[in-house]
Design a protein around this nucleic acid. Structure first.
Lengths: 118, 118
DNA sequence: CAGGATCCGGCAAGATACTG
DNA sequence: CAGTATCTTGCCGGATCCTG
């Protein structure tokens, strides 16, 4: 079996090969970072609370962002069968595991973004 | 001096308040992560080399991405006054300072994205 | 060789109205 | 209260042609 084209190094790359891209696709976008960040601080938030904390976001966008973060396993939705309805969002273990990264990002942005080269 | 409305906690947030967003805005997008990732590995790349390493990217998109990463201080462009022209891109110190974050992201994506809950 | 200029399509995001 | 449905918009990314 002649392993003809087997190189140790790939010759080219696509976005999907990049570990940064894989993560950014999940936690990136315009609002998801903020949602995760808030949930890291607040632990548990209702849908309405989030809309009040983030006045700029459109309902539809928040709704879809939450749904995607759910299906990516980052956060957990808990609905209470009450009237009026109550729904609480919190981070899953997988979501919590992002804390270390978030902390690093916070430090980096403080040191390299907010201070303009001093 | 009645510090009437002075709360310790802000009542609402915008995307710009979030440290994750600040960083993701710089290194995020479809191709920038890949560019940074490659430069972390290769140290120095010519424009044409990048297009060969990333066959999917459009010239204009690469061009603009590089320009933005420059103006954000992430990478350095060095042009040699030759014919035909030669241009080399490499990470700045600020760009290098992302390595720690990138490493964490790599680990996280390997542990939480690529293995689907085992 | 390293790009600039131009035109185009798609999807994310936004605004508003409505519902279980 | 916690969303959906619908319509519109804006920007990102893509393809092609052109140039110092």
């Amino acid at each position: 079996m002649a392993l003809q084209e087997e190189k140790k190094e790939k010759k080219y790359y696509q976005a999907a090969d990049c570990p940064i891209t894989l993560t950014v696709d999940i936690i990136g976008g315009k609002w998801k970072p903020l949602i995760i960040w808030l949930l890291l601080k607040e632990e548990k938030l209702r849908f309405g609370e989030i809309t009040k904390l983030m006045p700029g976001i459109a309902l539809k966008v928040l709704s879809r962002s939450l749904k995607e973060l759910q299906s990516d396993g980052i956060l957990v939705r808990k609905a209470y069968p009450e009237v009026p309805p109550r729904v609480e969002y919190s981070l899953s273990a997988k979501g919590e595991s992002l804390r270390q990264i978030i902390d690093l990002l916070s430090i980096w942005s403080r040191d390299h973004v907010m201070v303009e080269t001093v």
